[in-house]
Nucleic acid binder design. Structure first.
Lengths: 224, 224, 224, 224
DNA sequence: TATGAATGAGCTTTCATTCAT
DNA sequence: CATGAATGAAAGCTCATTCAT
């Protein structure tokens, strides 16, 4: 029984001209997309293999044929999710910008990406609920380390040299902070909306949030 | 018909020496605690009623006797969780402090509370995965609105009047930001640790994080 | 542990002046009525002890105190049901009527009683589903034998002697037939209504049925 | 997604020699038969899915795979039960007989069918206990309307034209009466036997009942 | 490559019944 | 006489997974 482990090669790479059946590839992609949606909607525990098959319009057995088990499927989805955001980050070109613009741009990007990809947040929550035991199994996890950290380090260093940023900022800490400012707001928007009795997802509210976040990040980074 | 006795008596009050057999309350509290742990560990979907009964050392049937269903039990746990943190906040006495100390104190408190109560984070994630449909059913949700928002508003105003804080800061936004800086780091620590290949939960790392967070919040609030 | 077996004394008999607590009696009667309704509505299998307690507005434990078990309670209800209809039959005074009027009156009575006491039918169905195993346990079952059989026999004999009824009619068979003509129509009215697409319980339909039944019975009994 | 293959193909058609493995149909038939027996024996409420699976010698899960729920299974059984009796009625050929013989034949058929198919009675009782809510969901219910009503109407009309039957007989009423005379006797035979202290199911008793029923029906239909 | 049929283990929930006072 | 608390057994149903083709 063959287990052709699939997925998420960087799409730019020209497909090697071997005819590994277009159908096979398409099926796997269908499954992956369907699974992503299902996991995002219900979490790992609440996701149903049946529903994934239905969403993908494919036989359930096929999921096992390609992905072995629910857990492995989840891992595959997770890896693809990371690959996707890394891919998006690659188009940011922060190095072309001034330090201030760079930070602003990164903050905006993070915010917008989370909004456009709500599954990202739910998926990450699921992964962490299960203590990242999935990631530990992944060999591709190392590659997931964002190249942004490097870039962000460069920006901070440039800014410091220009005398506008404070020194001693850990790019990892700052990266986590930017993400955290966006993530918490979006991830917990239901709870927060219920508690504060105001709709946090209106266009106005979202704009205010982004503005606030930028202020916080720049307020911190900029020297007095 | 049972009486799902709820909770959050001020824990200071010394229990009047019950003449025994008032086990109803104790049973409900046992269930609530056991459920909190189970939900925190496995999420709503992954939690098992059997395990909750086992943890509480009580008959499974009793859970239904007092709490009707898994969902209702989850809601009860959620309400108690909120009641607990509100109770803790009540002891903060931020108004006694200078604006700067107030902000610092609030940041520390948030950070420490999340660390001491890891279930808080997981529970909130679960609640949000289910789109807060539990909270919507709750009539007590309004009371959950943190009185801290008011206090935080006062602090910001005081600081502004003293000429040390910038103006126009929305206390809700700031509250969410403080929480977000802590929450994301802790909630996603497994994923982040795996990706960055460094242990984010070591004592040193945790201290660094708190220090960073405080810098960010004050860096933002303080006028240049 | 005392088990004061209750119920269904012929209500005319003056209560012996022993103070077996009015409350006790009232409780038992409440339970009996509540149980009758519940069993009639849901059958023996579908009936719920909880609901009976709720209907009777009494503690569930009390039901067991007085009636030992669900099965025994069902038997008690059954006995009371029979006692009730026997009691009603006692007021018929068929012997005062002409044979033809007697038959007509009995048919009408049967029909009207079933209509006024829909629980009678459901209860009997339940009893028979369980193969009357309840009745076999009952010592009072002998007393349940309708005295009407005797009366009906007299009527038939009188009619025969007057030369208007055919001879050789078995009163038990006729009794069962009268009951059957009414019972089946009412017991299966839902199914029949659905199948024939007409409402069998409208006033008009009910009158037509009674008229038809009387015609059948008299058409059979009367000599050509 | 399974295909709850229903039933009642005209059984005459010789099964095309299936190339094996078309076990789906056989499984569903097994379930249906087992369910019919279980429901007949214990009613809807008392029936156990476990026992049905055991009877059918199939995995319990499969029942849900094909029939979704206990209620739906019950409906399927009910529909099959009706289809079966309708099928049997189709072989009666009452139109070939004289009016008197036609009525006699119908009475005999009804009686014998109920005796040979005791599940029919219990199933109907269950359906009616639940107020035919199952039938209301069924789209096939219209087709269940007995074609016999038409035939019976023809017989009555023929008899009336021949001057031997009385006029104005509603075939639906008569159909219900014939069924009722048989149904009540058989459905309540346990209760009745207990009360009258005589075995109503002995061969002799059964013959007497049929004879009585025929007399009643003909006595009613025949003109004086 | 693809699929419909089948399953064992286990889930939430229900129920009649008993305990303890 | 009356009751709230508690329970073991089992019910209907679900789920990830495998079989057989």
């Amino acid at each position: 029984m063959p287990r052709p482990k699939p997925q998420a090669e960087p799409p730019e790479l020209p497909e090697p001209a071997e005819p590994r059946s277009r159908d096979a590839d398409r099926s796997q992609q269908s499954i992956l997309l369907a699974a992503r949606d299902e996991f995002a909607l219900h979490g790992l525990g609440g996701a149903r293999m049946d529903r994934i098959a239905e969403r993908a319009d494919l036989n359930k057995r096929l999921i096992y044929y390609y992905f072995t088990s629910k857990d492995d499927l989840f891992l595959a989805v997770l890896e693809k999710t990371y690959a996707d955001i890394r891919e998006a980050e690659r188009h940011l070109h922060l190095t072309d910008l001034s330090p201030v613009e760079g930070l602003r741009r990164l903050t905006e990007f993070t915010w917008n990406y989370y909004i456009k990809h709500p599954e990202f947040i739910t998926l990450l929550n699921s992964a962490n609920l299960h203590q990242a035991r999935h990631l530990e199994k992944s060999e591709r996890v190392r590659e997931m380390n964002s190249p942004l950290i490097q870039t962000l380090g460069d920006i901070l260093e440039r800014g410091r040299k220009e005398g506008i940023f404070r020194g001693g900022i850990d790019p990892v800490q700052l990266y986590i902070s930017i993400a955290g400012l966006a993530y918490f707001y979006l991830s917990n928007n239901h709870t927060l909306s219920a508690i504060f009795g105001r709709d946090l997802m209106s266009l106005k509210a979202r704009n205010e949030r982004l503005s606030h976040m930028t202020d916080v990040i720049l307020g911190y980074a900029l020297k007095d």
